[in-house]
Each structure stands twice: as structure tokens, then as C-alpha cells.
Write a protein that binds this DNA or RNA. Structure first.
Lengths: 189, 189
DNA sequence: TCTTAATGAGTGAGTAGTCAGTCACACCAT
DNA sequence: ATGGTGTGACTGACTACTCACTCATTAAGA
């Protein structure tokens, strides 16, 4: 019965927010700059997102699910090492292709502005849980909470991406040996 | 020859900044709040620090050197495992005793406001470098840059502290098995 | 006395969010 | 087809507020 909202516009806002936040940090990303980058009026941003925090929360969800969408060909049948390696490779791949995405994801997580209900277990997270649980089966690490292992893996992957982006000449070594280190740490093998 | 500045006052400002940044994040720590918490007038803050960024940079240096001062009884003679374990334990100890310090340190590092000249190699950093280099001697990881290994170790220690603070009941397991994981990762042993 | 620390109201540059007015579009009656 | 009408998206100037930093003045101390 009235003028419909434009899905494109919402996407444009999220894209703009991602760009500006990556460039200048969340703190340095005023809604005015985001609107401008999205090609809309300052006020229009608030017809798509009630507050700036709402926008940031939705950006977080979007980025997360975008990563899971990357795991389309996940090798379900194979053993834990292959599955973990697949996630590792995809993560590093994303880090190389879209460093902004991981940077902003990390910034959002650190910002303290995310609502708790915005942490639904992910496909990636669930599979990571399963793989680390299998990897540590029958060794001492199995006593440790799975969440701890997942955080460890993510931290190692994030550091690796960051380091590779700063020193691309080590991309190959870090990808291989970083995973070796991770796997040895989990299994002792 | 004139009225002298007070060292106490400077320290009070740094203490207040640490407290407020830990509580409310760097973004939520206005200079007015820091001055108030330090018990001085808003303007006085700027006789001790030219800008807020200067204050944050000096806070960063202070916190870093404070951690190194914690390593007084570093076991110089012993093997790499013991030395690394000493640093690991001290790090977790600090994380338990003063979670604000590590939290703010991480926030400052992520803020993008730190000057490069503020990253002088530390005692802790140098020893960490040596220990990881020894640990990886004669295994594939030795091809990887030492800085990468150091970042890995720090990330693992930070995650462990964070996790323990959130789930104190796992403090013992995470301290022990976290280190085991770290050491296995480095050496394969 | 003379320099400089200390004070806190003041300044100006932002900021998130609002709002009255405008306009594009879906729907309906002719 | 055609014109009219209700709805809500769209706009950007505006508001109320916060922030880092300044400055005229006062007080301390060498």
C-alpha cells in the first residue's frame, strides 16, 4: 500500500558500514559517513536500523553468516584433521581476500556492543566443536571445555591471517606450519 | 626554579585511566572522567599529557614495563620449556590478579592509536623469542618467523586468561593443558 | 618576586538521533 | 486506462548532547 523498502539500500548501508569501519575503526565511523558512503540521506539510515548499535549488530550477524556460507563444500565424511584443515584453509582464504571482514568482525567482538542473543551457534562453530573434540579424544585435552579449544583455534587462525597480511612472503609457511602447530597442539601427533 | 609537577599526580592519572578504560572501554573513557577519577581538574590532565593519545601511549608503555618487572626471578639457566612455562605462569597470574591490565593492553593494541616507536623490544618479548626459537629447533616450525611464534604464544595466553576469568572453575585445567597444547604445538613433543 | 602548576567554566567541532515536509508507489473507483 | 488517495520511504536541516582541548585567573613554591 506504500512505497516499499529497498533491499538494495539496506545492503548498501551494511556494505558502507563494513568499508568505513574497516578503514577508520568502529569509533571513527559516524552514521553520517556511513549514510554518505551508502548514497542515502543521513535520516534514511534510521528507517533501516533503529539505532547505530542495531546496525552494528546486524553487520556482525551478516559477516558471520557470510563466512559460514563459504563452507559450502565442507567434507562431512572425512576425518577430523581434514575437516579442521578445510575450515583453516577457508578462514585464511577469506582473510586474504577480504581482510576488512575479519578485521571488523574482531573489532565488533571487542567493542562490547553486541547483544548476547546475537551469538547463535554457527555451522562453522558447530563443526569446529566436533572436530576439536575428535582431535583431542583419548588425550588429556579432552578434559578441557570445548569452547576453550574453539577460542584457541580461532585465535590462532586470526593471528595467522593478520601476520600473513602484514608479511605476505610468509603466507605459504604460515598456512602450513601454523596448521601443523595447531594440530600437534590438539593431538600431540 | 618554579612550582614543580607532581609525580604522584601523573601516576594518579595513569591509574585512573587504567581503571576507567577497563570498566568502560577506551571509547567510553572521556578525559573528564579520567580527571575526576584522578582527583584533579579537567585542565590539569593536559599539563601532564599533551593529548589524550599521549596519555594512552604512555599508559601502554607503563603497563608493558610493569609486566616485565614481574619476571624478576626469571630462570635464566634452565631449558626452554621451563623458561616458557615461567612466562606462561606469570602471564596467567597477572591475568588473574589484574584482569584490567591485560584487558586494557589488548584494547590499546587494537585501537590503532599507538605510535610505532612505542613498541621497543621488551625483556619478556626477547626471552619469549629465545625460548620459542629453542623449542622449535630442528623441527619444521623453525622456518617460520620468530615474531609469528611470539604472536601465537601471546594469543594463546590471552585466550586462556580470558577464558579462566569467565570460567574460574577451569583455571587449573586450562593452565596445565593450555600450556601442554602450546608446548606440543611448538615442539611436537 | 617570579615562574609555573592548578583550576574549571568555556569553546568549537563533532555525534546520534528527530522531525516536518516531500515524494514514490500500491491500491481502488471510476 | 485514468485519476485520486493513503501509506510510509526519503530528505536534510535541526536538536540536544558529548568530547578533547583552551585560557584567564589563582595559588603554590623556589
Amino acid at each position: 500500500m506504500a512505497r516499499p523498502r529497498s533491499g538494495d539500500k539496506k545492503k548498501a548501508i551494511l556494505d558502507a558500514a563494513l568499508r568505513i569501519c574497516a578503514e577508520r575503526g568502529i569509533g571513527g565511523a559516524p552514521t553520517s559517513a556511513i549514510s554518505k558512503a551508502a548514497g542515502i540521506a543521513e535520516g534514511s539510515l534510521f528507517t533501516y536500523f533503529k539505532t547505530k548499535d542495531d546496525l552494528l549488530n546486524e553487520l556482525y550477524l551478516t559477516l558471520r553468516s557470510e563466512f559460514s556460507r563459504n563452507l559450502r563444500e565442507f567434507p562431512h565424511g572425512q576425518d577430523a584433521r581434514d575437516r579442521l584443515r578445510y575450515i583453516w584453509d577457508k578462514f585464511l582464504e577469506l582473510g586474504a581476500a577480504h581482510p576488512e571482514q575479519l578485521k571488523v568482525l574482531a573489532q565488533l567482538r571487542a567493542s562490547g556492543k553486541l547483544l548476547k542473543e546475537n551469538e547463535p551457534p554457527n555451522f562453522a562453530l558447530v563443526e569446529l566443536m566436533k572436530a576439536t573434540a575428535e582431535a583431542t579424544e583419548g588425550n588429556g585435552l579432552h578434559d578441557v571445555p570445548g569452547e576453550y579449544l574453539v577460542l584457541m583455534v580461532r585465535a590462532q587462525a586470526e593471528i595467522t591471517v593478520e601476520f600473513i597480511n602484514a608479511h605476505p612472503e610468509f603466507a605459504g609457511v604460515c598456512r602450513e606450519l601454523g596448521f601443523k602447530m595447531l594440530w600437534k597442539g590438539l593431538t600431540g601427533e
